[in-house]
């Protein structure tokens, strides 16, 4: 008989590591045609970090994302970056990009202020223009301001900055400290059906609520959450590296190391929780690794809800679930049905 159950799991996760220095650096230069070039050492692996970093630079300069040309991951030309690891890129590299963009913007303000007859503090960068705050009709195009900074003032609008998350070392006596600059939080709920004659588990639906700060790009956040859930489902139900007595892996290919296919994926509902972290770039934190943290626990709890057995080893294969169901029945023969 197929029995249905629901399980819930929550997690928190630190953004960026702090066991050692964790810096990122970036350079933003504004060109005379109103575009900008962003130099960053970070690596795009498909998660969309270069899109997000381009958006952050664009927001700092008041231009469009497509105006930003991103040059990345070339240590001949770009600043060093600690890496696309530890769910740190949006927060750590993003903060460096935002600071670099703001430094370039400050040079544009210095150049534009005498052109507009105001002080630099009265200016803002919006809609591809440097304009007087409250008087948007008094403006110069950003490219014009860049040109004036370069050939008029002799100060090219280039900003370089680095960011290293501020932390407080742990006090060895009290155990108190601040090991990470910020944290993200998430709750996932899994709905499963368990066949109590075969032990097979089918995940029907997962609802995932994630606080990642202000999402710079909600579609890419969804992509990270959905991908993390797929990994979590594999972790929960399928994926296991098996070794023989000599330590050789006996399932070294995808025929017998089983990972989720499109047929294993449930309906997924992603809920990006409204949030703002004042220490993050425009309120953002991060989203990568945390997405796969609560999935297996939610599925394990759903299995318990469905058939009353508590699995404590992963993956929760049909064999393991059925063994647990049989053990429970053996222990409580009077409750056999």
């Amino acid at each position: 008989m197929r029995r249905r159950g629901r399980g819930i799991a929550c997690m928190w996760y630190p953004i960026g590591f702090t066991v050692s220095a964790n810096p990122s650096a970036a350079t933003v230069k504004v060109n005379e045609d109103g575009t900008a070039t962003l130099l960053t050492g970070t690596v795009e692996t498909g998660q969309g970090s270069l899109t997000v970093l381009g958006q952050i630079a664009a927001e700092a300069l008041g231009i469009a994302t497509e105006d930003v040309h991103v040059v990345s991951a070339d240590t001949d030309a770009t600043p060093m970056d600690t890496g696309a690891i530890a769910s740190r890129t949006t927060y750590v590299t993003g903060n460096a990009v935002k600071l670099a963009g703001e430094r370039a913007r400050a040079i544009l303000f210095e150049a534009a202020a005498p052109m507009l007859g105001v002080k630099p503090e009265q200016l803002e960068a919006r809609d591809r223009k440097i304009q007087v705050r409250g008087f948007p009709q008094r403006s110069v195009a950003i490219g014009e301001a860049a040109r004036h900074a370069l050939v008029g003032k002799g100060e090219p609008p280039i900003g370089t900055a680095s960011f290293n998350p501020p932390t407080v070392a742990m006090d060895p006596e009290t155990g108190q400290g601040k090991p990470f600059a910020t944290y993200v939080y998430a709750t996932q709920i899994a709905e499963v059906e368990v066949d109590d004659e075969t032990g097979e588990v089918e995940v029907l639906r997962i609802v995932a609520a994630h606080d990642c700060g202000t999402p710079i790009n909600p579609m890419l956040v969804e992509g990270q959450v959905e991908g993390g859930i797929a990994m979590g489902i594999g972790f929960a139900l399928q994926e296991e590296i098996l070794f023989d007595d000599d330590g050789r892996q006996i399932n070294p290919n995808l025929t017998n190391y089983i990972m989720p296919t499109s047929l294993d994926m449930p309906e997924i509902e992603v809920d990006i929780v409204p949030s703002h972290d004042p220490t993050g770039p425009f309120g953002a934190k991060g989203v990568g690794e945390p997405t796969s943290v609560p999935t297996a626990a939610a599925i394990a709890n759903a299995i318990y809800d469905a058939v009353g057995v508590r699995l404590t080893a992963l993956p929760m294969t049909a064999e393991r679930v059925l063994a647990a169901i049989k053990a429970k029945r053996a222990a409580q023969p009077q409750q056999l049905r």
Partner: peptide, 8 residues
């Protein structure tokens, strides 16, 4: 097989 997207 896709390891990134969850196919969704």
């Amino acid at each position: 097989l896709c390891r990134c997207t969850g196919y969704t």
